[in-house]
Design a protein around this nucleic acid. Structure first.
Lengths: 339, 339
DNA sequence: GCCAACAATGTAAACGCTTACATTACTGCC
DNA sequence: GGCAGTAATGTAAGCGTTTACATTGTTGGC
């Protein structure tokens, strides 16, 4: 039924070593022989057995992408960038979500190990110890947006603090003094950083940092919706809302609309991530642009560098800068240089 | 460096066969022995080598998901559903996009073969011949939204015709008589079916089917935008636009807005797919709901059935029904039973 | 007490490939 | 013409498992 290298070798009257050499372009082979082997292989529909090859070479030509969740455009974009890069390097992409649960993450790590030549991990809840405990020291790893500062790992992080700071500063510069924030998921790294960027900007402008203006959220539209409802009944109503991501901003706007509060006239709204829809909403959502699909590309390029360079690969911790995107929802149309 | 079954066996004073039996729960082992092996394995951080195992068993515990593209929420949702199901069955997910190019699809197929126990293929451009030529007869395959009617394959298709028909009929019932369509990508299966559903509904209502009302598109927001611009300059302006997917509908709405044409008052707009944002837009986008993430789940469940049942698996061609979702963009608020 | 039956474990072949090393057959140089 | 050097090919060991079959040890029925 299934055709192996041996079948090809027999039919071509050569040894399996020669067939192997043809397929791997390793070692010298006559043009004539090569051609004969290739033809017969095609006729026989021969494909090298990936497992056998992996076993022999201890390479899998596959890299793993471990994500906290597979929901929403953010991850979809990361996957897209990753796939693109992986194909370019003639590798394969093993994707898995980890459900944010520590045990499941460990299981996922262990299970990936041995199946991949390298691993990109995007999981806010992971720490260096878990990583070291569950992965062989030799497996190249790139951390994407993880809360691990350890210089023993390559990592890529979004400049959450800077981005949030920039957006809030922008609002302040345009005379907003009561700015509420809808926070991200409790304990989430991005969430905390965005919050601290928000606070820093307020402090810097000598504005009060108050728990009364900080509303819980979990990055879903629903949470944004609920938070906005709460904000609306505040005695001294804020003039601006900074949502920790676009989904929540969208939810918030939809709540404001429901209550017939004009955006941005009565309340300005801004988000974070700049997901594609932000551009197409009405009003267009002001946001902090994160080069998401680029993130996937960068992570994988770094990973392949690590895989290739092996031991003399130098690890780096990079911070990806964000960019302020001003649309209508924050009430400041003009293109001006706020920084 | 790397620890193998042999290391565990030596340390535990048993043969490798016993260790193997412990890990696979195949064959009898004393509780005492099992415990000793397990403990030592844990201490040694032993993980069975996946390649060796695959070579030996010719199973990979991995299934492949071949998508035409990785762009947008649609695929992100399919992947999510797929991942969820795959985890449930303790398998892994190898994802790849095929770039819609025939050669690349063939390459992807060939490369997947041998790495996976089964394959879900979503690729409008593929035909039965290509499939047969590049895949071993024994590999379970589920076609997702492919234009292959062949009963020798399991397949899942969206009821594009029915969905489009239903939406256009709905518009007609509410007194729209000039309804433009923004078509999907040329030669694309979904695109053609949605177009024919549109035409059927018009014909059924004795409305003219005219090329003047059919505008090219390619499923991107940009295309929707451009098409709407063209529609706006039409001498006898349509009162409704049916976009072949939500992205184009969103692009169209944004073009109309730019020209200060009221939606739905002046022109009603409807889409297809019911991607999550549709709900949060203003106006909410009327659309044809496709249970996307469910699609991923269903496809993988079918695949696992095929993998498990092996030879006595009975292939089926299923059509997934869609559902009309009426929001504001088509101008008919009331919840009524249109069918 | 013997033997059958079975439980627990071991032995070794096979899975399909890569690759170090061995072999063979040419070349051209002195 | 012999020999070194090299190009082309072959041989066989190993990669880490699984598993059919063999071996050993125990049990219980007669």
């Amino acid at each position: 039924m299934k055709v192996t290298i041996k079948d090809v070798a027999e039919r071509a009257n050569v040894s399996i070593a020669t067939v192997s050499r043809v397929f791997n372009k390793s070692g010298p082979v006559t043009d004539q022989t090569r051609h004969r082997v290739l033809t017969i292989a095609r006729d026989l529909r021969y494909t090298p057995n990936a497992s056998a090859r992996s076993l022999s070479t201890s390479k899998t030509d596959t890299v793993g992408l471990l994500l906290p969740d597979l929901y929403g455009e953010f991850f979809s974009e990361v996957i897209r960038g990753a796939d693109q890069t992986v194909q370019q390097y003639h590798h394969h992409l093993l994707v898995s979500s980890s459900h944010n649960n520590r045990n499941e993450i460990e299981a996922a790590l262990r299970v990936m190990r041995g199946r991949v030549d390298g691993l990109v991990i995007m999981s806010p809840h992971i720490d260096a110890a878990t990583l070291n405990a569950n992965l062989p020291k030799s497996l190249p790893v790139v951390l994407l947006n993880c809360y691990v500062k350890d210089s023993s790992f390559d990592s890529l992080n979004i400049d959450n603090i800077g981005g949030a700071h920039q957006m809030v500063k922008h609002l302040i510069q345009h005379n907003h003094t009561r700015i509420a924030i809808i926070k991200g998921t409790e304990q989430n790294y991005d969430a905390e950083e965005r919050l601290s960027g928000y606070r820093a900007a307020l402090r810097e402008a000598n504005l009060e940092v108050s728990a009364d203006l900080e509303f819980p959220g979990d990055f879903t539209e629903e949470a944004g919706f609920q938070a906005a409802k709460k904000i609306l009944v505040l005695p001294h109503r804020p003039t601006a809302i900074f949502a920790s991501n676009d989904s929540m901003a969208i939810g918030a706007i939809s709540a404001l609309r429901e209550s017939e509060v004009q955006v941005p006239e009565e309340i300005a709204v801004a988000g974070f991530d700049d997901i594609p829809i932000s551009k197409y909403m009405k009003p267009g959502l002001s946001s902090v642009h994160v080069p998401i699909s680029n993130l996937g590309v960068l992570a994988l390029e770094r990973l392949f560098a690590a895989v290739t360079e092996k031991d003399n690969h130098i690890k780096k911790q990079d911070i990806i800068t964000t960019e302020l995107v001003v649309r209508e929802s924050c009430g400041i149309h003009e293109t001006n240089n706020d920084d």
